[in-house]
Design a binder for these strands. Structure first.
Lengths: 184, 184
DNA sequence: AGGTAACCACACCGGTCGGTATACTCGCAG
DNA sequence: CTGCGAGTATACCGACCGGTGTGGTTACCT
């Protein structure tokens, strides 16, 4: 049950297209990246892109699904390495490590800014990822839904503070606030 | 000193343009809105837009500055109505009231998703607004920078949870977590 | 041998993008 | 009377947008 975000296997050119699209969408934004550029970077053609994915919107939704799957796997691997009582805090360590590479923050918050409220097929993926993170925190604190939701707020807030806010200590502050909430 | 975000007075057509642009940029996104549409909605022409603002980028930066000024004024007015010891909590009440109208969440987080990392003139406004909110929380808790930063994370997290996450109880959870942090 | 899935190269479509140019009208201040 | 700032109307620019169509080349499966 680890991820509901898995992506069906793709042909080689399809894989290259999704890879290129994922990188470009995340770093430059969805609307800022055209299908011509994606096909170019992938070393293939627009024709192949449309044969595989049908539309840009569908490709965007797939990008979000695969990104959610990878983040979920990353954070799961991270928390499995520490004893149960430290696992909620370990999510913040995972976020810190993840953000060292991914300096544009939360892909889902960013995507929501561009496609939120439009009926875009990616919207459900965004909601699902946020719900999954909240559920993860709740699970890690033994089912306390309020505490889980509150830790989740710190997690989202840290993500925003570090990237949009340019406040590099955001994660450390979140870790400390989480410790205080966990202390009860 | 209440706001560093003030916007110089504009001509009537300029005012209409900035009003229209602000509404469209917030609700549909910056890249999704073209200058032709803005001029149309404002009941004027592209020529006037470029005469007043010089470029779309400059208009975007102005939109962000004015929005920051209005939010700061809104939250200040809100917290001034309650006794000092409740003011930090009152920021969450202000957010709740504000978000009832503005259902696309934080304009600065959204704008950052579209223009972050591009050298756009609006980036500095985004950073400044986040820094101002953090400073406001710090001020309201008597200068405790760590506590201020942590309350700020809850504020940003609530904003994300409600809008991108579709979790309407986000603000209430933030209020409760804030109360626990303030209890010490 | 025939079918088919995958891919490539390339040309094309209407529409929109940010931005500029030209030419005209109005009200106001010197 | 004149000059000027503000505004209107409209045409134009090259570039790019998402998406489609045609035709041809492999390689694998039956």
């Amino acid at each position: 049950m680890s991820t509901d975000f898995d992506v069906a296997p793709l042909t080689p050119a399809g894989e290259r297209l999704l890879d290129a699209a994922a990188d470009l969408f995340y770093r430059r934004g969805i609307r800022a990246v055209g299908v011509d550029l994606i096909a170019d970077v992938a070393g293939t053609t627009k024709k192949t892109l449309y044969d595989r994915f049908g539309s840009k919107d569908a490709l965007v939704a797939l990008y979000l699904r695969r990104r959610a799957a990878r983040w979920q796997a990353f954070v799961r691997a991270h928390i499995d390495r520490v004893p149960p009582e430290r696992r909620a805090a370990a999510v913040f360590d995972a976020l810190e490590e993840w953000l060292a590479d991914q300096d544009r923050g939360c892909a889902f918050v960013n995507a929501n800014a561009e496609i939120g409220g439009t009926g875009h097929p990616g919207e459900v993926v965004i909601r699902a990822e946020k719900a999954a993170m909240r559920a993860l925190f709740t699970e890690l604190v033994g089912g306390d839904e309020d505490l889980g939701a509150q830790l989740h707020l710190l997690y989202e807030g840290a993500n925003v503070a570090v990237t949009a806010g340019g406040q590099p200590d955001g994660i450390e502050q979140a870790r400390r606030a989480a410790a205080r909430l966990l202390r009860g």
